[in-house]
Computed example of a mutant assay.
Amino acid sequence: MVGPKRPDADVCWCLSYRVPSKENLSLHREARGERVRELMKEGPPGVLAYDGDEVVGWAGVHPRADTAFATNRKIPHVDDLAVWSVWCLRVRPGHRGKGISHALLEGAVAFAKENGAPAIEGYPVDNRGEKVDLTMAYVGTKELFMRAGFRKAADTDSVLNGFPRVLMRLDLR
């Protein structure tokens, strides 16, 4: 779900927010999958959604301190709480429009809570109901996070696909 169908393809592997930018840019092809395997030794880097035995969705979620959001200059820290971040919500083609992203976000919240997170943050786009390009929809929308009980905690200086990103937070205590 995280990697490509071809292991030699140079694609995301959901590493952009998990490793420093310089390292991310230096990893190519099979090395990207190998780096994900190394990160897996630290614990699951997210949650999966299933339709029967088939994996149909993925949400990247981990302590913010272990992500690029720990030092991101465009996305502020609203306080010093050891929050978790959810940065990627991906649903396979053919399974979209069935509420899977809602289930993924719910699963990410439960996973963070089970692992002692005091709060969880997401950094979705505020698309004001406009269509978001599918290649950029992985961050989610403000509306998706609001439906899951998150509240807007701050504006950010980050823009994705022409839409501003907002910092959404849910207290888990």
Rank of each mutant, 00 (worst) to 15 (best):
Val132Trp: 02
Leu15Met: 03
Ala119Leu: 12
Glu54His: 07
Gly94Thr: 06
Val78His: 09
Tyr138Thr: 11
His95Gln: 07
Gly162Phe: 00
Tyr138Met: 07
Gly3Lys: 00
Met168Ala: 10
Leu25Glu: 06
Lys5Ala: 09
Ala103Cys: 11
Arg18Phe: 00
Lys142Leu: 01
Ala68Val: 13
Val166Ser: 04
Asp155Glu: 11
Val56Ile: 13
Val132Pro: 12
Lys131Gly: 04
Lys113Asn: 05
Lys5Gln: 07
Met146Arg: 15
Trp87Met: 07
Ala154Pro: 15
Asp8Asn: 13
Cys88Leu: 06
Ala153His: 14
Arg147Gln: 08
Leu134Val: 10
Asp126Cys: 02
Leu25Cys: 09
Val19Asp: 00
Pro20Thr: 01
Thr67Tyr: 01
His28Glu: 04
Gly99Arg: 13
Val91Tyr: 00
Arg147Ala: 08
Gly57Lys: 11
Glu143Gln: 07
Pro124Leu: 02
Tyr123Ile: 06
Trp87His: 10
Glu106Ala: 14
Ser26Thr: 03
Arg92Glu: 08
Asn72Val: 06
Pro20Ser: 01
Ala117Lys: 15
Gly140Leu: 03
Asp80Val: 15
Phe163Met: 07
Gly46Ala: 15
Asn115Asp: 00
Ala108Met: 14
Ser158Gln: 11
Glu106Gly: 14
Asp80Lys: 14
Met1Val: 09
Ala31Thr: 04
Leu48Arg: 15
Arg96Glu: 07
Leu25Asn: 07
Phe145Gln: 08
Gly52Thr: 08
Ala148Ser: 08
Ile120Met: 08
Tyr17Pro: 09
Ser101Gln: 03
Thr156Ile: 10
Cys14Leu: 01
Ala65Tyr: 03
Asp10Leu: 05
Phe145Lys: 09
Val78Ile: 14
Ser85Arg: 13
Glu121Asp: 15
Val86Ser: 05
Gly116Thr: 11
His102Ser: 14
Gly149Cys: 02
Glu34Ile: 08
Tyr50Glu: 06
Val125Lys: 05
His77Arg: 10
Gly46His: 15
Pro63Val: 05
Val36Arg: 15
Thr67Trp: 02
Ala70Glu: 14
Tyr123Thr: 12
Glu42Thr: 13
Pro7Gln: 12
Thr141Ser: 10
Val47Lys: 15
Arg18Trp: 02
Leu27Ala: 01
Leu167Gly: 14
Phe111Met: 10
Leu172Gly: 11
Ala148Gln: 11
Val2Phe: 04
Gly94Asp: 02
Lys152Leu: 03
Asp10Asn: 10
Ile120Phe: 08
Arg96His: 03
Ser26Trp: 00
Ser26Lys: 05
Pro45Val: 02
Ala110Trp: 10
Lys5Cys: 01
Val166Met: 03
Asn24Asp: 03
Ala31Asp: 07
Met40Val: 13
Phe69Arg: 06
Thr71Asp: 13
Ala137His: 03
His77Gln: 13
